[in-house]
Design a protein around this nucleic acid. Structure first.
Length: 920
RNA sequence: GCGGACGUGGCGUAAUUGGUAGCCGCGCUAGACUUAGGAUCUAGUACCGAGAGGUGUGGGGGUUCGAGUCCCCCCGUCCGCACCA
């Protein structure tokens, strides 16, 4: 029989599907294991070879774990709400649901050809009402919760209402937007509206005014990366900074837990570090400064309370609410001009010229709490609205930004920490002694800081605190293609639908554009339900809403009564291995952790962290190929000769190039422009230039998995993708190398079939040498699989097959277990051979073979030799060498001789395979 | 600027985790079989040298009997954050 991969792969794909081989169910007799891929957003372009990389890895691991006796959950679905489908709908009028379904069908078709072991029974899309019902449901729970720092968990908002009724808002350690103080009497006298308005200050999903990039023409809020130089990337419409009422998630309440949780999960250091930086914990102090001649105080956050005697000005962010109250009449004009200039600048502009110093003086002063000195209050762009209190005490001597500001506006610079050269630059080191600082002079920076905080606390003008860079997430999008909020408005205050009204389905609309008066597209839905005459929220939820808890839903995807059952969650717990790109480090992977922790607080899921282990697969890049057209002609010059002419490089399709040599005839046939192309060759060949770039249609460097599967088969593709290099590394695709893997697969096939293509398997007992090859391989493959080193595993297979081919080994006892090993990497061919060996059940249910140590052991061990306990060197001896002889050999070793200096050792301790200790 | 990762043949990579550097594959060279080869098989392939031999893991230093691996300094590449007080 010939190795006809097309037939074989089709045959087994059908068999697996018909026999529901990959169906998974709760099975308490086996340990569970959950392997998850980041589900894809199905774009119109289909999959290229980079997309399945992680899926192949997770599939191999799934199959491996299954063979190791685990009950494995390995589901797949689609992140189906999102921008591209909606933009496409705006251009073509085609409903996003239709294009999304088409794209999904295409993705599924491509994925099926690769031979994945997904349990497709559990498939769902985030745009299914059955699914987004639970996204909406969770939102309602967030709305009905607040965060208590003492309990370190989310609590029902009703509990807070009780507390307010009994003791008011003072002295509570809870997450809040602003610190509102009221007594129990005041609370009890509030109207229902006042109460609801106040509660928004504490809810985990809340409605608040926020600064956003607003594009009036597109009628939506835009993210920073969607705005360049003040205009929208799409359409080039002007964008303004606007204070808008938006739904927010109080992610910041979980900052500490999100940070602490990182210590207990098995993620890469770099990814944890990215999240730590994103959360941005910093310890410092809040301090109140009294504003001269006003009741008001100015609150600031600082990480350097020790430098409080070096303060020479204060700065507010340009839209700070105090500005109006404190600006003196003389400064009105200047401040007004500055604020106008600032508001004309987009977030991006602001970020591009951070070096530029700008600001304006309000004319007002604060009183220094210790010296009583008058300190001027400025406003400036470099102070951010969203961090701390939006105001700082500026210490130019010890902060480079304050330094630049002080130099620019000629403000005094006071040195309060010894050691710098403040005539030249700010001295930011935290190692130093405080000087010119009243009661902390002479202390080191740390002590000084503590002393200042103590004084500030005594004066009741501040306290030590921890501040986080992590901000609350804006949760509304003025879009159509997303989850509708289960929210209606009464007296301009939001109320939630009840659970039996869910899902609130996305209504049909005539056009996917905002309304004339700037309402989101949902406002076009004329016959959309309204609740008792009150209007629904017209924004939809952002992309991360649907992807924040999908892994939980896979545990129990068809449950219509609950998000997922308690039983399923108690069995499957959380994801053991999660594979996906690192681009989600500060988005999805933060939101999902937040979301999971919230559900954990509600007692719905048993694990606090959703993803125990995370693997970031690298990106697959491409070698783009270039030809060099001589300017103004249709002549093309080979890469090595291109500098002899004036040329422009032109991207050429990678399929027209083999090992750097252009197929000139195929090139002529490729595009009409090139039909009459002439070539200037080197060594009789046209050599192309190459460059590593991202895979993109416009670079003609996209490799489509379908083409490769047609040419080499899915098994070859799977193994080659793994063979390319370590999973985590980004690496360029190089189709040339695939031949080597294909050769391996055919070689493996030939171990079973003789020259006439007849199955030829010997039932003879293998030789020890043959056993050694097998057991070495089992051990190595097991180790490689465990550490996700699939590239070295493929090499191991190749070595094994080379060795067996040399020995012309056709013994069943060798080949059968090898087939089981290979089935995780190349499931189709393995299944075919397994079947040929006489098995009727699928190889998927085979057990991972055990290796026998006696065949695996090398002939020698390295003995580390230590003198008086300190390891000195290692010595290699054959395994079967008696201990006495080892001792003699060690003592005769020149290094031992040198160390002994002629003395006789008291004792020599030998533990085979471990350590040799010589004691004097 | 801050933080992280990395640097090994012509190329992708490997190295029992401190123990013979370069496994496996691509490419290349030679040969065999072929009407033919972008098929298959065999042998070779880090560099210098005819050879014995010598040199080699970005550069420099250190620890060690022993360093690609550990420590310090420099150079370079990639990624993340970026006025976070």
């Amino acid at each position: 029989m010939e190795y006809n991969f097309t037939e074989i792969e089709k045959k087994w794909r059908n068999y697996w599907r018909e026999h529901k081989i990959y169906k998974s169910d709760i099975d308490h007799s086996k340990p569970k294991f959950y392997v998850l891929d980041m589900f894809p957003y199905p774009s119109g372009a289909g999959l290229h070879v980079g997309h399945p990389l992680g899926y192949i890895a997770s599939d191999i691991y799934t199959r491996y774990k299954k063979q190791k006796g685990y009950n494995v959950l390995h589901p797949m679905g689609y992140d189906a709400f999102g921008l591209p489908a909606e933009q496409y709908a705006i251009q073509t009028g085609m409903h996003p649901a239709i294009t999304t379904m088409e794209n999904i069908a295409r993705y599924r078709e491509q994925m099926d050809k690769i031979g994945f072991s997904y349990d497709w029974n559990r498939e769902f899309k985030t745009c299914d009402p059955d699914y987004y019902k639970w996204t909406q449901w969770t939102f309602i729970q967030l709305f009905n919760s607040y965060y208590c720092f003492d309990a370190q968990q989310a609590r029902p908002i009703s509990e807070l209402e009780e507390v307010f009724a009994n003791q008011g808002s003072t002295g509570l350690n809870i997450a809040q937007t602003e610190n509102i103080l009221f007594s129990a009497e005041e609370w009890n006298s509030y109207s229902e509206n006042d109460k609801q308005r106040t509660l928004l200050n504490y809810r985990l999903a809340y409605l608040a005014d926020t600064w956003v990039n607003w594009c009036p023409k597109l009628g939506t809020v835009l993210a920073n990366d969607e705005v360049v130089r003040g205009v929208s990337v799409r359409g080039g419409h002007p964008v303004e900074r606007k204070l808008m009422k938006q739904w927010m998630l109080r992610v910041s309440a979980y900052a500490e837990r999100l940070l602490q949780g990182l210590d207990n999960i098995n993620w890469s250091d770099s990814l944890k570090e990215i999240q730590r930086n994103w959360i941005g914990r910093s310890e410092g102090a809040f301090v109140q400064f009294h504003i001269e001649g006003q009741e008001e105080t100015l609150d600031i956050f600082t990480t350097r309370p020790d430098t409080i005697f070096g303060v020479s000005f204060m700065v507010l962010f340009p839209e700070h609410e105090l500005i109006k109250k404190i600006t003196t009449p003389e400064q009105q004009q200047e401040i007004g001009d500055y604020m106008k200039w600032v508001s004309s600048r987009s977030e991006t502009e602001r970020q591009t010229d951070v070096k530029k110093v700008s600001g304006a003086f309000t004319g007002a002063y604060v009183i220094h709490p210790f010296t009583g000195e008058k300190i001027p209050i400025w406003i400036a762009e470099y102070v951010l609205a969203g961090y701390g209190t939006g105001a700082i005490m500026a210490v130019p001597a010890h902060d480079s930004r304050d330094y630049a500001f002080a130099k620019h506006f000629n403000i005094p610079i006071r040195e309060v920490v010894e050691g710098g050269n403040i005539a030249e630059e700010a001295f930011e080191s935290k190692d130093g002694i405080c000087i010119n600082s009243d009661f902390i002079t002479g202390m080191n920076v740390k002590e000084g800081g503590r002393a200042v905080i103590q004084q500030v606390v005594e004066k009741k003008i501040g306290y030590a605190t921890v501040n986080y860079r992590l901000r609350d997430a804006i949760f509304s999008r003025q879009r159509y293609w997303g989850e509708p909020f289960p929210v209606y408005y009464k007296n301009e205050l939001p109320y939630m639908l009840s659970e039996n009204e869910l899902p609130l389905e996305l209504p049909e609309i005539d056009k996917f554009l905002p309304t004339e008066d700037g309402e989101p597209p949902l406002a076009r839905a004329e016959n959309w339900k309204t609740k008792e005459g009150y209007a629904y929220e017209t924004s939809t939820m952002p992309g991360f809403a649907g992807s924040s808890a999908y892994y939980l839903r896979y545990m129990d995807p068809h449950n219509s009564k609950e998000h997922f059952s308690k039983e399923s969650n108690e069995y499957w717990q959380n994801v053991d291995v999660y594979i996906g790109g690192s681009e989600h480090a500060t988005g999805h992977l933060i939101y999902a952790r937040f979301w999971n922790k919230f559900l954990f607080d509600l007692g719905l899921c048993v694990k606090d962290e959703p993803f125990e282990k995370l693997i970031n697969q690298g990106m697959i890049l491409a070698h783009s190929q270039f030809v060099y057209r001589i300017l103004g002609t249709n002549q093309y010059v080979s890469h090595g000769l291109r500098y002899q002419y004036d040329t422009t490089p032109i991207h050429v399709h990678v399929n027209l190039v083999h090992n750097g040599v252009l197929d000139t005839e195929a090139f002529k046939a490729w595009q009409p422009d090139f039909a009459n192309a002439e070539f200037i060759l080197e060594d009789g060949k046209y050599r192309c230039g190459t460059e590593v770039e991202k895979m993109s249609k416009s670079y003609y460097n996209v490799q489509n998995p379908d083409d490769l599967i047609a040419k080499y088969g899915a098994d070859t593709l799977r193994m080659y993708e793994m063979f390319l290099g370590p999973l985590e590394l980004s690496k360029p695709w190089d189709t040339n190398g695939i031949e080597g893997v294909h050769r391996f697969i055919r070689k493996f096939w030939k171990l079973f079939f003789n020259r006439n293509n007849d199955l030829q398997i010997s039932e003879e007992e293998p030789t020890p040498d043959e056993y050694k090859i097998l057991h070495k391989t089992i051990k190595k493959i097991e180790e490689d699989n465990e550490r996700f080193s699939f590239n070295t595993a493929v090499s191991t297979f190749m070595i094994c097959v080379n060795e067996l081919t040399d020995k012309k080994c056709d013994k069943r006892k060798i080949l059968e277990p090898l087939t089981v090993l290979l089935s995780t990497y190349a499931p189709h061919i393995a299944e075919e051979l397994w079947n040929a060996l006489g098995h009727t059940a699928s190889i998927y249910f085979a057990t991972f073979p055990k290796y026998e140590e006696k065949y695996v052991l090398e002939t020698a061990y390295n003995y580390p030799v230590s003198f008086n306990g300190k390891t000195r060197f290692q010595h290699t001896f054959p395994l079967d060498m008696p201990a006495k002889e080892i001792e003699t050999a060690i003592l005769q070793d020149p290094i031992t001789q040198k160390w002994l200096e002629g003395k006789k050792p008291k004792k020599v301790i030998i533990v085979v395979g471990k350590i040799i200790n010589i004691v004097l």
